[in-house]
């Protein structure tokens, strides 16, 4: 699988209405094939930034590019929402195919197989458990674009067992290739376990207060390393 694209974020200003700007002079790059966690308190603008990178919010001054192409014109990213957001009237397979007309049944089945749901292709969302629905959502994102994944709080509102399951799945999907991944979270633990770089946002307008590299590969991190990484992130 090809290495994921590089991202360049240069937001001069983003505001909603006449309120104080959400972002002002926010600039950072994301290297191709890196896994970056965007950490910060609720309401700081993490999800908004993710949507700007996805190209659906272009109401801002500045430019965001994906491999040099403006975000809105770049290939559709694989996007995972905070909730599974599956269309209840479509089966798991058709939920994947719905968002990508080029996706064949074979490709959709393969995406489901990657997340361990090979037997669930014909099931409707209400027939799937919460964890299975999340996995279908991840399969959908991978089927659309496995080289650029944008995840908005992918582990929020899940019980601990399900969080562990989803993290394992996340590592497996990322490990299959070298996608560029940007995920939003408000938990240092998510970043410590999964990312190789953490960007911490604070204040309003949102400012990068820390840009931390986590050099040890996620699979090789033991509890001591994780505790150390958590502490590094939490310090900010």
């Amino acid at each position: 699988m090809a290495i994921g694209p590089g991202l360049n974020i240069a937001v001069d200003e983003k505001r909603f209405g006449v309120s104080e700007p959400l972002f002002k002079g926010l600039r950072f790059d994301i290297a191709p094939g890196s896994v970056v966690a965007l950490i910060g308190p609720s309401g700081i603008g993490k999800s908004t930034l993710l949507r700007m990178i996805a190209g659906i919010d272009s109401d801002f001054a500045g430019i965001i590019t994906v491999d040099g192409t403006p975000a809105a014109m770049a290939p559709t990213p694989g996007f995972v929402f905070q909730d599974p957001r599956l269309l209840p009237w479509l089966t798991a397979m058709n939920n994947i195919r719905a968002v990508d007309p080029r996706c064949t049944p074979k490709q959709a089945a393969s995406a489901l197989q990657r997340v361990g749901l090979a037997d669930a292709a014909g099931l409707y969302p209400h027939q799937l458990s919460g964890g299975m629905q999340r996995r279908v959502a991840l399969a959908r994102a991978v089927a659309v674009n496995a080289s650029l994944l944008l995840l908005d709080e992918p582990f929020v509102s899940l019980d601990r067992a399900l969080v562990a399951e989803m993290r394992t799945l996340f590592r497996a999907v990322v490990g299959d290739g070298q996608p560029t991944v940007l995920f939003v979270s408000h938990l240092a633990d998510d970043a410590a376990r999964l990312a190789d770089r953490v960007i911490v946002l604070q204040q309003r307008p949102a400012t990068i207060v820390a840009d931390i590299a986590l050099p040890i590969a996620p699979r090789s991190r033991d509890e001591a390393v994780l505790a150390d990484y958590r502490q590094m992130v939490d310090r900010h």
Binding site: T76, F79, F81, R85, L87, A98, P101, V144
Partner: peptide, 16 residues
């Protein structure tokens, strides 16, 4: 509105 956003994020054509 969530499904609306889903359509926009994945850039589904209007007819689809």
């Amino acid at each position: 509105a969530d499904f609306d956003e889903l359509g926009r994020v994945f850039r589904m054509p209007p007819l689809r």
